[in-house]
Design a protein around this nucleic acid. Structure first.
Lengths: 144, 144
DNA sequence: CTGTGTGCAAACACTTTGCAGGTGT
DNA sequence: ACACCTGCAAAGTGTTTGCACACAG
């Protein structure tokens, strides 16, 4: 078992209150989080700017990854074991589902993104698949 | 052969200078365009706000579709024949490639996005696949 | 002690809204 | 003539930067 504190140390980030709380929040959540989500969840405890900077350093260390959104507001989700921070340039193959009704975005760990055949000379870094629709919970409410 | 003017009439949009020029620009481009791209290409001819509103009405009419971007800035691309504006809710299955070096985003028409198996009760509306890497042109320059 | 992180203020960038006047049909 | 579209101004929202102080190592 790995504490959040040890995890931060391991990747050479100083253990500060905001990092611990934000990272813990990511671990508790099963949904992708936007800056606004974090800000309101930790309401008032930290400055907006600190949250921006914390997200940026987590991104650089490979702790979290971007989750695309069709509204233009990026979200972030914690990297699973498959994205180890040790590897500088690891391949991300992320699939996510966003519900148009409740707006929540979940990771679809089981979905395999096929390797696309790029034209000659193209190099692949990363693939992101965003599936949009209505989740089971919202579907029930809508049809009721 | 279909003129831009006739196309606009067919979908019940008034034929105005800004719509004609923006739609023509989309047709001429093989890349997805952001609001800023359009603004600078048509520099000064139209107000920023007009461009926002034009994009919005094109979107509503199904003339263009959103293209996801990992920078948070949405881009747009013209819908091909497969997205007819007549169909109110047509399935979009778009795959795009974005070059990390030049930043250009191209449609990958030939790539098939597999239908993902969603959990029970989930309804699918749309799938977007964004593949990122280095395009052939930038690859040459970088290795030179 | 030293370098990094934080909070505050301000700048900057992006998008939306209200309104008056102009234009397409 | 009438409804719709445009431009301008302003407000709203999201993000970045500079600087002084605080804190982790």
């Amino acid at each position: 078992m790995e504490t959040v504190e040890n995890f931060l140390k391991k990747i050479n980030l100083r253990v500060t209150e905001s990092r611990v709380q934000i990272l813990s929040f990511f671990q508790d959540q099963e949904f992708a989080l936007s800056h606004a989500d974090i800000e309101s969840a930790l309401s008032g405890k930290f400055d907006r700017v600190t949250i921006y900077r914390t997200l940026k350093s987590f991104l650089e260390k490979g702790l979290i990854h971007k989750v695309l959104d069709d509204s233009g507001n990026l979200k972030y989700a914690i990297c699973t074991h498959s994205c180890s921070p040790e590897v500088a340039k690891h391949q991300h193959q992320h699939a996510h589902f966003k519900c148009a009704e409740c707006g929540l975005t979940t990771c679809l760990d089981e979905v395999q993104i096929p390797t696309v055949n790029l034209p000659k000379g193209f190099a692949l870094h990363e693939s992101n698949l965003l599936v949009q629709g209505i989740c089971a919970d919202c579907g029930k409410v809508l049809s009721a």
